[in-house]
Nucleic acid binder design. Structure first.
Lengths: 224, 224
DNA sequence: AAGAAGTTGTTGCATTTGCAACGGAGGATA
DNA sequence: TATCCTCCGTTGCAAATGCAACAACTTCTT
């Protein structure tokens, strides 16, 4: 198997598929690979797309921009994760913009033949489809989590909800977050300076300590 | 075919499946039916679920409640629409609470056998799975739309974004919305009185006219 | 070393928002 | 009719927020 495909074995889409079948399915799905420079746009909001993408290397942001130009980060994705699967399955225009947050390598796959269910298809396809179902379900739940943050009324609540979730998912207490301040504000959809002010207050009240991307939540907060 | 299943023919999950196969698949999926009174809880946030639900009659709200008890409506669903599909596929706890907004009738289906892809399954299953993929994709896009409203910074922007989308999806200009004021505020995650104040200002500025649930957007706004 | 560019925190200020409380309109019921 | 209840709008006020501008600090480039 080609070296550059090794990481696909860890990709949820190919979970349960034999190593030798992975490359076969790539060819079956008419793959192509493309490189992007940092900040290059991979998919612009409003466009349709016929193929889903899998990040092979680098980091990619899923963004949304409002009429006033406020950029908000919907989510980040990493090597092994896929994007555009929903708009391919639904044949709709993308509600989001996909941007390379660093230099990135992406592989694209046509999955039309998996969607109709009436053609004669190779054996591994059933597994691909059920993996796709699972991925879409996880993303659904992820979007619900995002909505949870955004539906909170104050910046402090949003920050706390995010930090608690981050603490929980890492299982550590001094823990790092994958955002710098600008990005965190964009993710929580609040003003950066207002967020910074609130973070300062929370530090004064000893709710949280932080230095760059390393955060420590007060133990009393964690007891709830 | 049993009369009470007629409406399932219009359900996206059974799209493309022959009428005689629908009842067969219901039995294959071990269906059961349950009635709910208005305000009764169908699924509580934090719980897991092994079966997805389809609304046969009535109206159902997908809710979320924050630590302070603020209720927000994530979305509404109507007869023919399904819920809990994501948490069944992902085998995760529900991030939302499902509540009967009116008296409602729900049919539950076990879909485990559709997910593994290795068992011997009836012919219609492939179609069920690809329909499920499409539904999950649509919901994904719907959640993105919701995030779009919530990421806007001011109440006015949220109201406008919602009304424009509602106008677009109905294709009419005096158009009705499916929420009363309380529900709309809960959907947009803002304070009801603050929303009411903003609606009043927007009426003063002749941006929108409204009477109960009937809204009319100013033509100048629609030209963008 | 110098300068440029990016990141983070700070502050003043106008505006927006949440909150609480109240009142009126309209519907349902006894 | 009287009463209760729900829905909707209104208002005063304190607090939160967005915005703009600036300063301190780091990183990178030249």
């Amino acid at each position: 198997m080609d070296k550059k495909f090794f990481m696909l074995e860890k990709c949820l889409l190919f979970n349960g598929i034999k190593t030798e079948d992975i490359e076969a399915s790539l060819h079956y799905l008419g793959f192509s690979i493309k490189n992007y420079k940092k900040d290059e746009i991979i998919l612009l909001a409003g466009n349709k797309m016929a193929r889903l993408g899998i990040i092979l290397a680098g980091q990619v942001d899923i963004d949304k921009e409002d009429a006033l130009g406020n950029r908000s980060i919907v989510t980040q994705i990493w090597p092994g994760e896929i994007f555009a699967e929903a708009i391919v399955c639904a044949a709709e225009a993308s509600p989001v913009t996909v941007v390379a947050a660093t230099d990135a390598k992406v592989i694209f796959l046509s999955i039309q033949m998996l969607l109709t269910g009436d053609e004669e298809v190779p054996a591994f396809c059933a597994r691909l489809v059920s993996n796709l179902l699972k991925i879409l379900s996880y993303k659904n739940i992820e979007l619900n989590r995002k909505i949870e943050y955004l539906s909170l009324r104050t910046i402090r609540e949003k920050i706390l909800a995010y930090l608690l979730a981050q603490h929980k998912s890492t299982g550590k207490n001094p823990f790092t977050i994958p955002f710098d301040r600008n990005q965190l504000a964009a993710y929580l959809c609040v003003d950066r300076s207002a967020m910074s002010r609130e973070l300062g207050r929370m530090r004064d009240e000893k709710i949280v300590k932080f230095k760059k991307n390393l955060f420590t939540l007060n133990k009393k907060i964690l007891l709830e």
